[in-house]
Write a protein that binds this DNA or RNA. Structure first.
Length: 833
RNA sequence: GCCGGGGUGGCGAAACUGGUAGACGCAAGGGACUUAAAAUCCCUUGACCCUCUGGGUCAUGUGGGUUCGACUCCCACCCCCGGCACCA
């Protein structure tokens, strides 16, 4: 049965996918002068199977890409693979396969799933991070950064995930846990490579203002993450054994220099170098050691740890407040972290909540130095007075406002050499060394004679060796491979050792979208001219989880590439769309929860069009989407109804002529149908182009189909051309949302070529305009009646007509009309009292 | 605590620059077709009330305000979700 969609959808979809595969154009270059649209979805990690989150992400992107193609844009819509990373290595350890094999098989499987969903990607531009032709350039960028001192090696305290056996960047620690495996993250001191993202901190922050197309949420998260604070670095000279201040000082960072006269002690983090001064065997030493011992491993900063009760001990060290001259004790306590500022703070209990709590607990003096605007000391347990105000008991600054005092105190402090202005960021440099195998090798060697030597560009790529033993025992697998490690120094030809750490995979994904523009360039990562023609990315779609990961790294890379002369813009992404999660039973789909829905099964039961349609229809893109199988059936029914209505008429409609543009106006049914067609075109176009709403276009098409059904239910001689016009329009409007149905309808209705290559239909103003409209009649703003009239109806005439309505008149009874508000063609409001 | 986003029927949602609140879909109820079921088609469906082929009142988290008119703008508050967090 040809008119049974249920029997036919699979064959229809497969046939079109086959045709798309054969007819796909060779990687199209930009045509100068034409408008371009770069539509990009975040590239997936090749885990082996698509999940519904992918399907949703790509359905949104594909709809937009197909729409812009029909609107006459040159569209770039590529796909690739973020194919380095730990899961491949873990799978290899577990199953005894090689990560490369596992990865390549997964890519093949997922690519075929993507094809079965009918996504229109330009596969000739496909890239994969693990292919040498790609990671060669990842290494090249690293060398360029090394040249510019944007990559450096240092011994630093790093986040260590013992389960993943590797270092994590700060961005990869979430609430003290590993972003991938959720195990608790420890700290280790290691030599590792970092990228100097902090060199761009100010610009990364400032340029957020130039991204109106980004969600406020992401802008806020990045602003937060960069965490700029302006303040002062102040030197507190250390009192030496003899009792006089010596040359050495404790440096503290403060944003509240105005409160410094209220500093009654200082606090350093456990692990602060000043603690070495506490004499062995002294009474302070014993208590200090007891305290540090109790802190256990946590003698160093733990980003993301939950606040706990303030606890600390007096170190016996004293420092001098350079402003007031007061001698204050130095404590070590658990609420100061080593990873921010200098790991030391001046404590002003009257005006800082943490200091207040600590001082209260240990009965340390609390000195009020800022009064509120009424001149009242406002610190009262359990809270410190943390607002700005007017200074008191602050020597020459008494009586000044906080703001002014900060300025003047800083100026004076600078002159005296005891303070200097400092802008502090929360953002830290990006540690990229990973002690794992399946990643881009870091292209440097260590020579006994020459030290750290970059691998010459001409020797790139440093190939990742294949014959490696993956045991999962820890330590970098490459380090155990002599044939890789042992090499010659490129500078002196003497014996040297290769770096055996690999790069964080976020390095790979920080520049991939440029490579799509010029995917097979062997001389450079890309031709700047070609990239300039396609950039910026017009729409970038992905999950919010990358707000302070990929999306901040990519912005950093863009700025570096710009400074290398490869890029002509400051920001790579114009509009960012963060799609919501796909939920089932109220929570995110996950294997561990057992609430996943398999895309393949959906495609088998309902087809790609239905699966895609549902992910677009069920919720606006940025909201979470609750998977609802009955909703899926609803979308299937829509396609089924479309098919049932048109399939029996394919031959007739294919042969029928189109109505002339002005025809049908004299027949209310035909006029209504044509009006609906053009209103639908208008609605779908505006929603796709201006609002990026994808649920309402689906509704609009459902409404249009309902109108077509009504039209057919009273079908008359000579109606064919009108139905044909509606059906052909429906076929085209469906292209972004349900492309297979779109193509099938188009060809069965006698359309030439592919529906996807047709120009997008245009709403004709003469059919959008309704000659006779319904005008709402209100009395005192409340709906009391309607009248059908021409748009040109005058206000007086409208009032006269409205008052013919008994209902309106009843509400006016006994009242005087004060005024009327008339919106021609819309509404009449009679205000009466 | 700070920052961001939200609170609309039984549910997912819609309402463009303030102008008919609830489009579209799901679910539910009733009916037609059928021996029956499925499928399909038609009707009803925010709540309450009345003198019930009609009409009224209330209703978009709560309380105020602006306006002829407020889901939409302003003020205050409550709740939910997300992010950050001893950041000095």
């Amino acid at each position: 049965m040809q008119d049974d969609y249920r029997e036919n959808f699979d064959a229809i979809e497969r046939a079109w996918q086959e045709r798309w595969r054969c007819t796909r154009a060779a990687a199209a270059p930009r045509i100068p002068g034409r408008r371009k649209f770069y539509c990009l979805e975040m590239l997936p990690y090749p885990s082996g199977r698509l999940h519904m989150g992918h399907v949703r992400n790509y359905s949104i992107g594909d709809a937009v890409a197909r729409f812009y193609a029909m609107r006459g844009y040159d569209v770039l819509h590529p796909m690739g693979w973020d194919s380095f990373g730990m899961p491949a290595e873990n799978a290899a350890i577990k199953h005894g396969t090689h990560p490369a094999r596992w990865t390549n098989e997964n890519i093949a499987a997922m690519a075929s799933q993507l094809r079965r969903l009918g996504f229109a990607y330009d596969w000739e531009r496909e890239i994969a991070a693990h292919r040498p032709a790609y990671y060669r350039w990842t290494q090249w960028f690293f060398l360029k950064m090394l040249e510019r001192d944007l990559a450096y090696r240092s011994r630093r305290l790093v986040n260590w995930c013992s389960s993943c056996q590797t270092v994590l960047a700060n961005e990869q620690v979430e609430g003290g846990r590993c972003w991938r495996c959720e195990s608790e993250v420890g700290r280790r001191e290691l030599d590792q490579w970092s990228l100097r993202i902090t060199a761009y901190a100010e610009e990364l922050l400032a340029d957020l203002a130039s991204l109106p197309g980004w969600p406020d949420k992401v802008l806020a998260m990045q602003r937060n993450w960069i965490g700029k604070s302006e303040g002062a670095m102040v030197r507190f000279p250390i009192v030496e054994a003899g009792g006089a201040p010596g040359g050495e000082a404790l440096e503290v960072f403060t944003t509240r220099l105005d409160t410094i006269y209220g500093c009654t002690f200082c606090v350093v983090a456990p692990g602060h170098p000043i603690l070495a001064r506490v004499e062995a065997g002294g009474r302070h030493r014993a208590r200090l050691d007891e305290f540090l011992g109790r802190m256990g491993n946590r003698e160093v900063a733990r980003p993301g740890a939950a606040p706990e009760e303030k606890e600390g001990v007096d170190t016996g060290i004293e420092v001098v407040n350079p402003y007031s001259g007061a001698r204050v004790p130095v404590h070590v306590a658990n609420f100061v972290v080593m990873g921010y500022g200098t790991g030391a703070v001046m404590a002003v209990p009257a005006h800082d909540q943490r200091d207040f709590e600590y001082a209260t607990r240990y009965r340390l003096p609390i000195r009020t130095v800022v009064l509120d605007e009424r001149g009242i000391p406002a610190a009262s347990p359990p809270s410190a007075m943390v607002e700005d105000g007017r200074l008191t008991e602050s020597g020459p600054y008494t009586g000044k406002g906080s703001e002014e005092a900060r300025r003047e105190m800083l100026r004076a402090g600078e002159k005296a050499g005891m303070a200097r202005p400092l802008v502090q960021y929360r953002l830290l440099d990006w540690g990229i060394s990973r002690q794992r195998y399946w990643g881009t090798p870091i292209p440097v060697v260590y020579c006994n004679a020459c030290g750290v030597v970059p691998v010459p560009e001409s020797d790139l790529p440093v190939l990742l060796p294949e014959d490696v033993a993956l045991t999962g025992e820890g330590g970098s697998p490459l380090a155990r491979l002599a044939s890789f490690v042992e090499t010659r120094c490129p500078r002196c030809a003497g014996p040297a050792r290769r770096e055996t750490d690999t790069m964080d995979t976020f390095v790979d994904s920080s520049w991939y979208f440029y490579r799509y523009c010029d995917p097979s360039n062997e001389k450079a990562p890309f031709d700047p001219e070609v990239v300039a023609a396609w950039f910026p990315i017009d729409l970038y779609i992905g999950g919010i989880e990358h707000a302070t990961l990929h999306l901040i790294y990519s912005r950093f890379f863009a700025k570096v590439l710009r400074d290398l002369g490869l890029l002509r813009l400051d920001e790579p992404v114009r509009t960012l769309l963060c799609q919501g999660m796909v939920l089932k039973g109220g929570s995110a789909m996950s294997k561990s929860r057992g609430n996943t829905v398999d895309p393949d099964e959906m495609v088998r039961r309902f087809g790609a069009d239905t699966t895609r349609l549902f992910t677009l229809f069920a919720a606006p893109p940025e909201k979470d989407l609750e998977w609802n199988e009955q909703g899926v059936e609803g979308c299937f029914r829509f396609l089924e109804k479309t098919w049932r209505l048109l399939a029996p008429r394919f031959t007739t409609l294919a042969r029928a002529p189109f109505p002339a543009p002005g025809d049908g106006g004299d027949d209310p049914r035909r006029a209504a149908l044509r009006r609906k067609i053009h209103q639908t075109i208008d609605k779908v176009t505006v929603d796709l182009e201006k609002r990026l709403h994808l649920n309402t276009p689906v509704s609009a098409l459902m409404e249009m189909l309902n109108a077509m059904q009504d039209f057919v239910s009273e079908f008359r001689e000579g109606d064919d051309p009108y139905l044909k016009e509606a059906a052909r329009t429906l076929a085209l409007l469906l292209q972004p949302l349900a492309p297979h149905m779109s193509e099938e309808l188009w060809s069965r209705l006698g359309g030439e070529g592919s529906a996807g290559r047709q120009p997008w239909p245009e709403a004709r103003p003469e059919w959008l305009r309704e000659d006779e409209v319904e005008i709402v009649v209100q009395v005192n703003g409340r709906l009391r009646g309607h009248l059908r009239a021409a748009v040109s109806l005058t206000e007086d005439e409208a009032i006269r007509r409205a008052r013919e309505d008994a209902r309106v008149e009843a509400h006016l009874a006994g009242r005087t009309i004060r005024k009327t508000i008339y919106l021609p063609g819309r509404l009449l409001n009679i205000v009466a009292q």
